[in-house]
Amino acid sequence: MELIKKYFPDLLDQQINKLSLLKDLYAYWNSYVNIISRRKLYNFYQQHVLFCLGIAKVFSFFPGSCVMDLGTGGGFPGIPLSIIFPHTEFILVDSISKKINIVEKIIHNLQLKNAHAICIRAEKLEYRFDFVVSRYVAKIEKIHNWIKNKFRCKSNCKIKNGSLYIKGGDLSDELKKFPHAVEYPLRNYFQESFFITKKVIWISNI
């Protein structure tokens, strides 16, 4: 948790309290359903929370916007982001019901009023969003096909609607069909070696 305070020194006490509860909540629910690798629980705040909050280092969701977390799994990046952006609505989507059941419990435990979990395949969802976020779900081209008709037609702010992906490694082949994609290396924001190859990818929908 000290890592989070180090890189996000302006968090409110309420946000710090919610983020501080995360590891124990996930350790508890993980004993019932394996939603996080037990090995990664040891580095929970670095490999899960801070990694997801890399999005918040390069991008700010405006109040009133609606964001889909596609393939949320155990609630990442949607739950950490919903704590950081309390005035933005997050819809956490996954097709695996046992994972969504746990995510709903964690949302309830944290009393997150701006986060909602839905068990459905993303391409069948009838909602429209300002932004889509995703971590380690599939190749960007495949995700793009799932979400290309899921965006609101007009943006409510100066930032264009689009998608943000948290990924690692060499993405040159994956991004060939997206020449307008913008890469934000997380090593520019976080000093830990874990982030050397990690990136946030921004692709505008317009």
Rank of each mutant, 00 (worst) to 15 (best):
L3A: 03
K6P: 01
Y7W: 07
Y7K: 08
Y7P: 04
L12I: 10
K18P: 15
K18Q: 11
K23E: 10
Y26H: 07
A27R: 12
W29N: 04
W29Q: 08
N30S: 02
N34H: 13
I35K: 03
R38C: 04
Q46I: 15
V49P: 13
L50I: 07
K57E: 09
F59T: 04
F59V: 03
G64L: 08
M68S: 12
D69N: 01
G71F: 03
T72W: 00
I79V: 12
I79P: 05
I83V: 10
F85C: 08
F85H: 09
P86W: 04
P86N: 05
E89N: 13
E89M: 10
F90R: 10
V93S: 15
V93W: 00
S95M: 01
I100V: 11
I100S: 03
I100E: 01
N101F: 07
N101K: 14
I102D: 00
I102A: 00
V103S: 00
K105P: 00
K105C: 09
I107T: 07
H108F: 15
N109H: 15
L110R: 02
L112F: 04
K113H: 11
N114Q: 03
N114E: 05
I120C: 09
K124N: 15
K124S: 15
E126S: 14
R128L: 13
F129L: 11
F131E: 07
A138Q: 14
A138P: 00
K139Q: 13
I140N: 09
I140W: 01
I143F: 00
I143Q: 00
I143S: 00
H144N: 12
I147W: 01
I147T: 06
K150C: 02
C153R: 14
C153D: 14
K154C: 14
K160L: 15
S163E: 05
S163T: 10
L164C: 08
L164N: 07
K167I: 01
G168V: 06
L171C: 06
L171S: 03
S172W: 06
S172N: 12
S172G: 14
E174A: 05
P179Y: 01
A181L: 05
V182G: 01
E183A: 08
N188H: 13
N188R: 15
Y189F: 15
F190C: 10
Q191R: 09
F194V: 08
I201W: 00
I203E: 06
N205S: 10
